[in-house]
Structure formats: C-alpha cells, structure tokens
Design a protein around this nucleic acid. Structure first.
Length: 657
RNA sequence: GCGCCCGUAGCUCAGUUGGAUAGAGCGGCGGCCUUCUAAGCCGCGGGUCAGGGGUUCGAAUCCCUUCGGGCGUGCCA
C-alpha cells in the first residue's frame, strides 16, 4: 500500500481537519457494481483499507458519503455504541433528501441501526451527525425528522465527481466492456408470416435497450431473433401466396392483405417454378426469406430492415426449422424420455411430465405426430444453453406468460440451470384511434404496422428519426409490466407535445453553448483543473453535478431490474434541471457566455473568462452523461433543434415561396 | 374455478427490497422573450394511493380480504 491506510479511529471521531488536498478515501466503498443502489451491508466497511488508487472508478456523492459514514460507524462501534452484528445485518440508504430536507444527501442509517441495537434513533443520529460534521469532506451534518441525517458535502467532493466524469469521457458510467456474464437476449421473434405491428414494437424496443443497458454495465450480450419458420403458420402463408398468385381466395385460416399479394407478384415475376404444387418446401422457405428481408421496390419492407430502421440489429437469427432439420427437437425429446419425463397417452400424444414448476403436463407431440411449439422451444433453449450463455433472457408479451413455468420445468428436467432462464414479460399495447380501442386481427384487415406509424411521424415532423425516437420514448417511459395505451392519432401528430423533444432540446442547448464558445469566442472546452473547477459554484450547478455522479448507479439499477424507464426518467430529470438552470441564469444575467448585448459598451472587458472556462467544464460533463444516456436509449443526440415555426403549420410553406 | 399482472391527480404514468409534507408529464389558471435556442422557465390549483382489516416507532410499499380491469389456464403460435 502506497499511502498510509486510513486507520479506523478508536473511540473518537476522525481528527482530520481542514480542506483535503488529496483524495483521502479509504477505498472501503459502498455498493459494488453487482449489487447496486440498495443499502450496503456493513461487511463493505469492515475489510482492510486499500490505497486510494484502488477506489471504484466512478464515484458519486453517495459513494463518497458512504465511505465517510463508514468511518464514523466504525468509530461508534469501537466506542461500543454499535455492535458489529448490527452493522453487518443492517442496510441503510444514502439518497438525495426528500423535499424540504436540507443538504445534499440524507441517510437513514441511524433509524435502521437504532432498531438493531435498541437505541433511540434521534440520539444515535445526533452522534453520527456530530462525527460526520468533523469530517473534512463534510460541510455540515444535522439531524432531521425521526432520525435522518442530512449532510452537506464540501465543494471538493463535487469537484472530484466533475473531474472523474471528464476524465472518463464517453466511458463514464459504463463498466469495462465484457467483464461480466455472457447473456443471450432473445426478443421480438415475431412470426415471419406478417409485417411487424406496432405492438411488436414494444418488445423490440424494450429488448434492444435492455441489451444496451447490459452491455453498458459490462455484460457480453448476444441479441437473438428466433424465427418460427416451421409448422402450420408458415405453411398457411405459403399456401395463401400460392392461392393469391393463382387468383384464388386464400385457404381457411390463411393470410390476406397487401403483403401476400406482393409475395404472389414476386413469385410470378421471379420464381414461377416455385408456384408448382410439388415445390411447397422451397416456396415456404422463400416466403420466410422475403418476409424477413423484404422485397425491393415494393411496400413489403421486411422485418429485418424495419427493425434496423428503428435502430435494432440482431447478432443471431435462429431458425426453428433448422432445429427440426438437424434433429435437435428429436434429440431433446429423447433426452427427456431418458430422464423419464415423457409419457405417451392412448391416442399417441406425447406429454412432458412437469415438475413442481408447472401445474400440469403439456403436450410436446400431437396425436397426429406433429410437434408442438413447446417441443421446439425446449430444443431451442437447450441449444442456447449449449452455446455457453450464463443467462438466457427472453422478452415475451404477457400473453405468453403461461409458458414460463413449463419451459423452466423443461430446462430443469434436461439438467439445465433453470436459474439461468429468465423472462421479462411486457404487457400488451392497447391501440386507440378516434378515442376508441382498435381491435386488431389479421382477418379484420386493420393491422397497424410499425412501419406505418414510424413513417407517418417522420413525415409529420420532417425528421428521418422522429418516428423512431418518438416510439422509443413512448415505449421506454413505462414499466414493462403496465399495459399502455397508444393513441394513434396523438402519436402521429406529436410534434410539439412529444417528450422526446424535451430531452433532445437540452442536449442541443449544451451543444449550442459549446458551439458559440468555439465559433464566437474561440474557446474550446479546457482541460480539467481544480483552479477552473472552483468557478463552478452556483447551487444549481452543484446540484447537477450531484445528479451526474448518480449516473453509473442509475445505469446499473436499470440494467439489473431490466427497467429502461429508469434511465428515461433520470435523463428527463437532468434535462429539467439544466433547463431550469439555463432560464434562471439568463434571468439573473449570469450566463455562461456573454450574450450579444454584453459585448457592447465595454462590458466585454469585465467578463470573467475563467468562470466561463470553468462552467464549460461543467457543460461538457453534462453533455457527456446526456449523450451517453441518449445513446443507450437509442435516441439521436441532436447538435441543434430546428424549431417549427407558426408558418410551418398547415400550409406547405416552401411550395408557395 | 385456479394462476400471473395491474388499480396512485381530470388524462398518461413514476414512486412498490417499509422512511420525512406521495411526484412528473399532459391538460387548466396566472406570469416570463432587446441578452448563451421560449420545443423553454417560474408560480397556482388538483389526491379517501380502488375499499376494508392487520403487522410497527413509521405502510402507496409487507400480510389477509373484498371489488374492478387485463392476460393465461389449447394436441394454437
């Protein structure tokens, strides 16, 4: 250990005084990456001290305070005020204070520990506050309410956070790549028998961002699309195409609609041979290919290009048909039979004999000899596990939730790790048009495609990513397990009311400040120095630094909970804080850069350019977090926003000059 | 019937591993553009956290129960 370890003070509060000039953290940091956000067990505090250079790379104010608090609690333990047992078994929070609370952070440590040791919460809180107040990194600490301790940290803590963000740059908040587990994220997997619908969009966007979050927090992610290209539905599609190409009605239960006609036309033009009755297999395969890839120059965009248009790429496209062709389904069933988990009914149907997970046996092979979807799903998950993933994450619509139990039971029965299997269920999307719910059905001919909605928003806003971004923000702003209502009329005309613009506007303003600094005043964002950072003193500036320090924990929390909406809410709050600061300082004539009117009448000479440089550091730090967050959500981070003007409404302005 | 999810402001939703006076957006009302972008900012109004009971210093959060909504409970995918 290079520097001297921070000794656990015995009996008294830490005696260090004065402003710290080097970072004195003991390294006994709080919540490690794998167990984010929530309280910390005291074990984190009781280890040996490490040198400061081993500290966690990104440390927010919370982690700093946890560290200081750890010293205090150790001291109180040494005094006999607390027991090691109580410390070990208790979890306490370090959070921004509730409304009305003072200071930068609050902790309920005294409330939690008092219970474990039978003391009065307020009395314990008073001791904690008194000790904390003597810590050089703490400006003040006071007891509030039933026993919370509100803490104001020294400026140095804020500057430390600022410098870490700037030092980390684009990597800030992210864990080192591919340092954690290998995760397979399977999502969308919509049948290739029709175009993607708006309802598929939720699973697509949710899965994509969960994958991005997992990558950002250090996991190795494979995005996978499972193509159900086997069985009845594909056969029906191919038969429908055959019928339509021959000018007949599609068969009972078959498919209709424009895209089937596009397929029919394609076959007539390019592969009429596949319309022969004995070419069923090849025709089926070709249909799937066209559904996935689309037909150039037609309205059939294709599933893969559509997903790409909303910013989603897959690493692996798995074929159910291939699993059958390779005998994997047979093999899986043989495995299950060998383990005595199959039984055959009198009519020939084969059942999977369930374990404790599910409440009844499920058919894997029908009495007519066909396999069920469940059978290939077992083989598919066996295959995924065989590829070495430590976790199989599946995003399913809530209407599939009945499959969770049976599949888990099956995985367990063939000896797989059932704990590796995880399903995120998302509730379905209810569509509303003209104030009424739209019941979609392929026979009703009212399928509302993802493409349609995205393109219409693009067109209405006049920006090629508007539809993608609007839909992303809409879907990502809600928890997966709440059902949501998509008002199509609203969605297609949400130019100004769309929350996506709010988030993007904040980024554009940051970019605009940097642009003005460079172009008008020739100032680039400087390198971080403590001297410049000391100009960052505005309360709103410091408060935003506290928010920025929270970003790594937000990512971790969102990733662990598979909750992209937490990142959306965080960014929205950051946007709000910055917009508020921007307006406030403008009103107070305390802006980062001189306005045009500041440049006249000798005012320019009085301008404090060092303060400007210091604040540009701060601006850059915000932008760093901002653009990182937008990237993880798959949203554009525009350099400037072109505000729609009144003339743009209604009339096509340019046409009339 | 059984299982899972949900019920929070007029509307759409956060907050749910128990903590301070339950929040945001939209909508409503009232202010703010000669200054770094007003797609913005500030303020006001708005609540039996579906109802009831319990657990405790403390419950929107945990337990029980009732009601309401969605989904599942297929030899469909």
């Amino acid at each position: 250990m290079g520097s001297s370890p921070t000794a656990i003070p015995s009996g008294k509060c830490s005696r260090r005084r004065g402003r710290p000039d080097s970072w004195p953290l003991s390294g006994k940091t709080a919540a490690r990456a794998g167990s984010p956000a929530q309280g910390t067990t005291a074990e984190n505090w009781s280890g040996f001290c490490r040198s400061a250079s081993e500290r966690k790379p990104s440390m927010g104010l919370e982690e700093i305070l946890r560290d200081r608090l750890g010293n205090v609690l150790d001291a109180l333990t040494a005094e006999g005020r607390l027991t090691a047992d109580a410390l070990r078994s208790s979890r306490f929070s370090v959070e921004p204070p509730r409304r009305g609370g003072t200071g930068d952070l609050a902790t309920n440590a005294a409330l939690v520990l008092a219970r474990a040791t039978g003391q009065s919460p307020r009395e314990l809180a008073t001791s904690i506050a008194r000790c904390l107040a003597e810590d050089p990194w703490v400006q003040s600490a006071e007891v509030a309410g039933p026993g919370f301790v509100n803490v104001a940290l020294d400026r140095a803590a804020f500057f430390h956070v600022l410098s870490e963000i700037l030092a980390a740059g684009r990597g800030y908040g992210r864990a080192p790549a591919a340092t954690k587990s290998r995760i397979n994220v399977e999502f969308v997997s919509a049948n290739p028998t029709g175009p993607l619908l708006v309802s598929h969009g939720r699973g697509a966007i949710l899965g994509d961002v969960v994958a991005r979050l997992l990558e950002a927090t250090g996991h190795r992610v494979t995005r996978e699309y499972y193509i159900n290209d086997f069985g009845n539905q594909v056969r029906l599609l191919a038969d429908s195409v055959l019928a339509i190409a021959a000018g007949r009605e599609p068969p009972e239960g078959g498919y209709g609609g424009g895209y089937v006609e596009e397929l029919g036309a394609w076959f007539r033009a390019h592969r009429p041979d596949l319309l022969e009755p004995n070419r069923d297999e090849e025709r089926r395969r070709q249909c799937v290919l066209l559904m996935l890839e689309g037909i150039d120059g037609s309205d059939l965009l294709g599933i893969r290009p559509m997903l790409r248009a909303v910013g989603i790429e897959f690493d692996v496209w798995s074929s159910e048909e291939a699993l059958h062709r390779w005998g994997r389904v047979d093999r899986a069933l043989r495995d299950l039979a060998a383990r005595d988990r199959l039984r055959t009914a009198e009519d020939g149907a084969v059942y999977f004999v369930t374990g404790d997970e599910d409440d009844k046996d499920r058919v894997v092979k029908k009495s007519n000899g066909d396999y069920t979807y469940f059978a290939s799903d077992i083989a598919y998950h066996e295959d995924k596990l065989g590829r070495g993933f430590e976790r199989l994450l599946n995003l399913w619509g809530a209407d599939h939730h009945g499959y969770v139990a049976r599949l888990r039971s099956a995985i367990e029965s063939f000896g797989g790790d059932a704990n590796a299997f995880e399903v995120v269920l998302f509730q379905l999307v209810k569509l509303v048009r003209d104030g009424r719910e739209v019941r979609m059905g392929k026979r009703l001919g009212n399928l509302i495609t993802l493409q349609e909605v995205v393109e219409e928003i693009d067109e209405a806003v006049g920006n090629p990513h508007a539809g993608r971004d609007a839909l992303r923000v809409f879907y990502l702003s809600r928890r997966a397990d709440t059902s949501i209502v998509l008002d199509l009329d609203l969605a297609k005309r949400q130019e100004a009311e769309n929350p996506v613009f709010y988030i993007q506007y904040g980024h554009a303003r940051l970019a605009s400040i940097q642009r003005r600094a460079a172009e008008r005043f020739g100032i680039q964002t400087p390198r971080y120095t403590d001297a410049l950072a000391r100009y960052v003193t505005h309360p709103l500036e410091l408060s935003i630094i506290a928010d920025l320090g929270r970003y790594p924990a937000v990512l971790e929390d969102a990733a662990v909970g598979r909750d992209p909406h937490k990142l959306v809410f965080y960014l929205n709050g950051l946007a709000q804080s910055f917009q508020s600061y921007y307006s406030q300082t403008k009103k107070d004539r305390d802006t980062i850069l001189p306005g045009d009117s500041d440049l006249v009448a000798g005012k320019a000479e009085q301008w404090n350019w060092d303060r400007t440089r210091g604040r540009l550091l701060w601006v850059d730090a915000i932008r760093t977090v901002y653009s990182s967050g937008l990237a993880i959500l798959g949203l554009d981070a525009p350099e400037r926003m072109v505000r729609p003007t009144a003339e743009d409404d209604g009339e096509l302005g340019d046409a009339d000059g």
